[in-house]
Design a protein around this nucleic acid. Structure first.
Lengths: 341, 341
DNA sequence: TTACAATTTGAAAGCGCTTTGGTACTTTGG
DNA sequence: CCAAAGTACCAAAGCGCTTTCAAATTGTAA
């Protein structure tokens, strides 16, 4: 069933049927109701390709997930982020087009998405501290929203981010307040903007209390279970090992926990741990007394906001670009305690 | 730059340019080369909407992820599955369209995808033991491939699955061979086909050794860290607690580990654990001596196969539907040992 | 040379929608 | 009562491709 057939069935022109379905004002309420009922009855849904062609743009948002061939890792936060964004897209009648691409091909993919008009905008994932994708997309005139920010980029763009720096400053301060002076940092890859900011927060807090920053207890790498484990085991083997750790992800925090326990130490007693928690749906860390003390920010909520802001930007290109800084709460769990004497 | 403009630039008709780019035989090699070079030079990419409209179908595959509103959980395997499938789609020039929908609306979504011609086929996720989506899609004449199988459905359809039943039989046998007689099962939701089959494998092995099946040490639920933890803690509190556990996911296995350790028991000594491992990229369980003994099957590989088989089916509708049963390996790790005396 | 087939190219139709630029009819204000 | 404005509808053009059908060119056999 296409528009023509439906129009014939209703004894109306295609024009009127189209306008009725798309809520244009120049249709009487009576016919609009009749048309909508008819469409429902005959199971009519407009052909997307025809609609996109006629309108000159697709009702779709692209998510381009870069995966470096070096580490073939899918960031686990991505599924929750998409889940959040997806619900907003559905509300607004947008589809979600997903591309998983090698770092090196990312710009080519954006160029194609633009040329083929297969999306109305894109969400940028995993921004680097210094990231030329922002400028690239701006020049390409492809609307976009970034999950995170780019420290080196000053011109305005649409983003949603967590206050990584102050969250990690507070987390570090908490550990300092508990008497810890050797605090290991097990961070994500520090060319990534979020990781860089977290390290800044960590260093800020140490500097404010005149605690020296020691590269030997600062690790930057993948946020896997294994990597968390290894980093902790290595640092615990140092002559003056940390008494506390600050982690960038729940997944690596589980690895850290394993490393601590295998070293015969008790988490929350001998060793304290604070981790960032993206509130992934399958890694609960809540309840009365969560496993880990954490800086907390829902990545699903970030997905929702990204989607809303991007769609707003697409529909109102002249309005200023929205920026949204989410604040991460600090939640006390069982993994922190006073530094051992 | 569109086809018309490119054709003018090359002093050729749209027809010839289109044919040259799409590798039709009736174009001389000389002009084909010239056309391709021209397209490259001018950064021409065909407008997807126009192409889809002209061809009558989209070069896109839909993934419809059902999320029950009851438990707002995104299954973590989904990102790795998509990563696998995605690479195959890219090779074949397909896009990936993602919908995350409430269970109740799933059929409606398929109907729309079909009516709007926005995908050439779909991948079905998370099949139930008895699942009417198979029949629904067959009737709808929308090509599909299932990640998993549907026990209650006999007619042929395209699927890729792991031999869940025999994997869990072998895993159970391993524990029995180690002398365990009280083996707790912490399974996924058993209306799901994979979970049902795993339980069958578990029961098969017990029956073969005349070990009674005890519902008190069989749990069916979400595969979250929390759920694994709780189930283990509960079972360990029983008058005759299990000496071993069989888990359906690495994530819940981490919860199980936590529960065991909090109960003051040593994993791999006092209590043995075998888990299924989907080889998610951020949850490594490999190396010389993996954390968990596991039944092992790469969900990323399953994604690749699903994509290949579905595309094959779309391009060759008359050929028989492909079915693929992956076998899960059993890998010994540190979490299993002889039953305590 | 002629006739016929094979190769290479092009004009134009059509995919199913949106939107422009009308027309016909109704209402309103003076 | 008439002109002007408003309301409700429609015919047809156009979005940028693919593909059908036909034409032009070249090659081959008689």
């Amino acid at each position: 069933m296409n528009l023509k057939q439906l129009a014939k069935k209703l004894d109306l022109s295609q024009t009127t049927v189209s306008r009725a379905l798309n809520d244009y004002p120049e249709v009487s309420e009576a016919t609009r109701a009749r048309v909508k009922a008819g469409a429902q009855k005959h199971g009519y849904s407009p052909n997307i390709a025809a609609r996109n062609l006629a309108m000159g743009h697709a009702m779709a948002i692209g998510h381009v997930i870069p995966v470096s061939t070096q580490y073939e890792i899918m960031n686990p936060i991505f599924s929750d982020l998409i889940a959040g964004a997806s619900s907003v897209y559905a509300e607004h009648g947008y589809e979600l087009v997903l591309s998983i691409v090698d770092n090196a091909e990312e710009e080519e993919v954006y160029r194609k998405l633009k040329a083929r008009q297969s999306v109305a905008g894109v969400v940028l994932h995993s921004p680097e501290m210094s990231d030329n994708r922002i400028e690239f997309l701006t020049n390409l005139k492809l609307p976009f929203a970034v999950h995170g920010r780019v420290s080196d980029h000053t011109a305005p763009y649409c983003w949603v981010d967590v206050n990584n720096r102050s969250a990690f400053r507070r987390a570090t301060e908490l550990l300092l307040d508990l008497g810890h002076r050797r605090i290991g940092l097990i961070n994500g890859i520090e060319t990534k903007d979020f990781a860089f900011r977290r390290r800044q927060g960590y260093e800020d807090a140490l500097a404010a209390r005149d605690v020296a920053v020691d590269p030997a207890i600062m690790h930057s790498g993948l946020m896997t279970e294994e990597e968390g484990y290894k980093a902790v085991v290595e640092m615990l083997a140092l002559p003056t090992p940390p008494t506390a750790f600050l982690l960038s992800s729940m997944v690596s925090a589980f690895g850290a926990k394993r490393g601590i326990e295998e070293s015969g130490l008790v988490l929350g007693q001998d060793i304290s741990v604070v981790t960032h928690d993206d509130e992934l749906s399958y890694l609960g860390n809540s309840g009365e007394s969560p496993i880990f003390t954490s800086t907390l920010s829902s990545v699903r909520e970030a997905g929702r906001l990204l989607a809303e802001n991007l769609i707003h930007h697409i529909n109102n290109p002249s309005e200023p670009l929205r920026e949204e800084l989410l604040k991460a709460d600090l939640r006390i769990g069982k993994s922190t305690g006073p530094a051992p004497a």
